[in-house]
Design a protein around this nucleic acid. Structure first.
Lengths: 189, 189
DNA sequence: CAAAAAAGTTGCCCTATGTCAACGTTTTTT
DNA sequence: AAAAAACGTTGACATAGGGCAACTTTTTTG
């Protein structure tokens, strides 16, 4: 149940086994369904999630009803509605599992308790932030000035998992193009 | 010379005056010209900058020669080519001052020394990261699905400073629209 | 396993926005 | 102060890609 999380933590930090056990003891398990919402736009996000199995999507719904995918996280990764988690304001974005998933989660209270008492955990958090920042930045700015074809080529190169595991519709909304355009582009390579 | 930095640090952290003096003692001052490059695309970023006066722009130049503005930082803020600063890889982006500016800067070595020895500074860094993440996210995702007019309205609402202090050309490249389009949109409010 | 729902594909048309160029204005340089 | 360069504005034109709809294929559900 906690093996994957332990493995990941061991890889990312240098904690002894006791500390490791202590950390994971704060996590609880939850099984979720395809398309199950974890956090709604109005809610304040209270948990940090770790994906044992499945996939989490972060998205928004615009006034005209279109949904925009912001981020996908797969197995062995952490995910949450970070701005809301940090500032405890309404998320203004949705968190959902797009497949039946097995997640571990830790409450915000416990999370910050660990950050404030375990330097190794604080360091892990810093790394998560640094990484998240870099990835978000690469992804977003990577697209600047790209046309539809270039975006698709970019995604194939940098996140091939996405095209394999996620519906066209969601990939399209992630790339900021329409589903039809994505379909057309893919048919021409 | 260090008053502004001290003021900002005092507001953001709860350090005693001695620690404060110690922190600022690692910073050096530099005066730069309009359009002076601080970090080139090929360089590895070695400094974290604090803006006493002026404005820093982060941008890239695409293969076809267009420049894309990623970020503007004004007085009383920190700025650097963060991914490069963190990972010590070539920046793949440029850092420049777009007006004559007065900057304070701290070397990466000293910066991480402070992060690793002063918990208050570590906390400050965490806050900078959290904030940077949230702002970048808001800005980027804020634009998703916006047309040119909506982007301009967004910028007027959220970063009015930009339109006042930065050339149309740079604002346009920040918004991901052409200078002509920006000009046309502005003329219709 | 059948029916229903969702997702993907493709054609047609249309609009927002890019490109280019000409021109006027402002800023920079010397 | 004059010359040069950069910037902003506007018109004419071209086009990528969105919206919609009809149809097919895949997935989900009972």
């Amino acid at each position: 149940m906690f093996e994957i999380l332990e493995k990941v933590l061991k890889k990312k930090t240098d904690v002894d086994d006791n500390t490791l056990k202590k950390i994971v003891s704060y996590f609880k398990i939850i099984h979720t369904k395809r398309n199950q919402i974890l956090v709604t736009s109005e809610e304040i996000c209270q948990n940090y999630y770790f994906i044992n199995k499945g996939c989490i999507r972060l998205f928004t719904i615009s006034k005209d009803g279109n949904d925009n995918s912001r981020f996908f996280a797969f197995e062995e990764n952490f995910a949450t509605a970070l701005p809301s988690f940090i500032d405890q304001k309404p998320a203004e974005e949705y968190l959902q599992t797009i497949q039946d998933s097995e997640l571990l989660y830790i409450s915000r209270t416990d999370f910050y308790h660990l950050v404030n008492t375990l330097p190794q955990f604080a360091k892990l958090y810093t790394e998560i932030l640094e990484n998240g920042f870099i990835i978000a930045q690469k992804r977003i700015y990577g697209f600047q000035g790209f046309d539809a074809k270039e975006k698709v080529e970019w995604i194939i190169k940098h996140q091939p998992k996405l095209l394999l595991n996620v519906s066209n519709k969601m990939v399209a909304s992630y790339l900021g193009i329409s589903a039809s355009t994505l379909s057309r582009v893919k048919s021409k390579l």
